Simulated assay, not measured.
Amino acid sequence: MIRFWGQPRYSREPLKPIGYELFLRENLNGLWRVPNDFSRFTPCQITNLLKKTAPQLSQGMQRVSINLDIDQFIDSRFYRAFFAVKTQLPYLRISIELTEHSSSQIISDEQLVLAAKHFADANLHVILDDVGSGDNQINRVELLDPYVTEYKFAVQNFRPYESLNDIMPNLLFWHQLAAKHQKLFTIEGVESKKDLLILSHCRVDMLQGYDLGKPVYLPTQDDAVVVNADRCV
């Protein structure tokens, strides 16, 4: 059985929760675990679960983002499945986070741009996750610029450090690039009041991290339902 766990995303001013980043979790022998292989879950499984979860979200928390690795991102089945959810649940604000993970296959710039265009044309916002880490470097940022709405900067990817001030030049580079490209900018990995105090001087758009809110179980309309892997309903 799979379910979403959601980590709240906070607006900076005022500091309040406005939605969730959704993480897929699998129940094995009564324990919720991170799946070993996300690729075995089909677009229909994921979007069917989203349709069962969305009606339970409280008002004001209906902005959700879902991570896709690049292999999933360029797979047109994901675009079509999420577009169907967007059509059926127009109140739900769905963003797709393109992760920084590498692919085992060769993916062309043309494939990546076309996929980003499909999502953006369907009003499914594209977020570049963990900019400055993995494959989400400046070349990809420039390539996808017309179709991306937000950058996320993960401070946890730069640990260990004594203080958040130690990585501030890197953070400010991406913050300034987001402003230049007119993108939203989110800092994730906020894990202490000290982090929040330092970041209070950065006029970012959103914040996320354990100090603000840990991932929580999100119930579905019927927690007895096991998502059907064979067809979209």
Rank of each mutant, 00 (worst) to 15 (best):
Q182Y: 07
Q221F: 12
F153N: 07
L112H: 05
I106C: 15
L172G: 12
S102P: 13
Q156W: 08
A224E: 11
L184V: 11
G213H: 06
L172Y: 11
L207D: 05
P14D: 07
V216G: 10
L124A: 04
Y161S: 09
R159E: 12
W32E: 03
F83D: 12
D129C: 03
N27S: 12
G6Y: 05
D130P: 15
K16S: 11
M61Y: 12
I70D: 02
A116S: 14
R231H: 09
V113M: 13
R40F: 10
N139T: 13
D211P: 00
K16H: 08
N123M: 03
D211T: 00
R25I: 09
D145I: 11
K214P: 07
E97V: 08
Q156V: 15
D223A: 04
V34Y: 10
D121R: 08
H181Q: 15
G19L: 01
F41I: 08
D205I: 02
Q7Y: 03
R203T: 11
Q45Y: 00
D222K: 11
L98R: 06
I2D: 04
Q62I: 14
L212W: 02
N36C: 13
V227M: 01
F73T: 03
A229K: 00
P35V: 14
V113Y: 04
L98F: 04
L177E: 14
P8M: 06
N165P: 13
S192A: 12
N157W: 00
F185V: 07
L68K: 05
K117C: 10
L196E: 05
N170C: 14
P35N: 07
L31P: 13
R3T: 07
H118V: 11
K52M: 10
L144K: 02
D37I: 14
Q156N: 14
R63K: 03
I187C: 00
T47Y: 03
Q56Y: 09
D69W: 01
K193W: 04
D37V: 13
L143I: 11
G6I: 05
I187N: 05
A178E: 10
W5S: 01
V190C: 06
A224R: 09
P55I: 05
F158K: 02
S76G: 14
P219T: 03
S103R: 02
R9D: 04
V233G: 15
H201R: 03
L207S: 02
L31C: 14
D109F: 04
L112T: 14
E21L: 09
N36W: 09
L57A: 12
K51M: 10
P90H: 06
L184I: 15
H125W: 07
V216R: 03
L164K: 01
L124M: 08
D145S: 13
Q176R: 14
Y20N: 03
S76M: 13
S133G: 11
N228Q: 05
P169E: 04
F4Q: 05
Y151R: 06
Y147K: 15
V85M: 03
L49C: 00
K183P: 12
D205G: 00
S103E: 14
I96P: 03
F41E: 03
L171N: 06
K180M: 12
I70L: 09
R93K: 15
F173A: 06
V190E: 00
V64G: 02
R3D: 02
V204H: 00
A178C: 04
N157R: 15
S192V: 06
R93T: 15
H118E: 08
Y79R: 04
Q182A: 14
P17R: 06
E162F: 01
F38Y: 15
N170Q: 14
R93Q: 12
R93W: 15
E142Q: 10
L89Y: 02
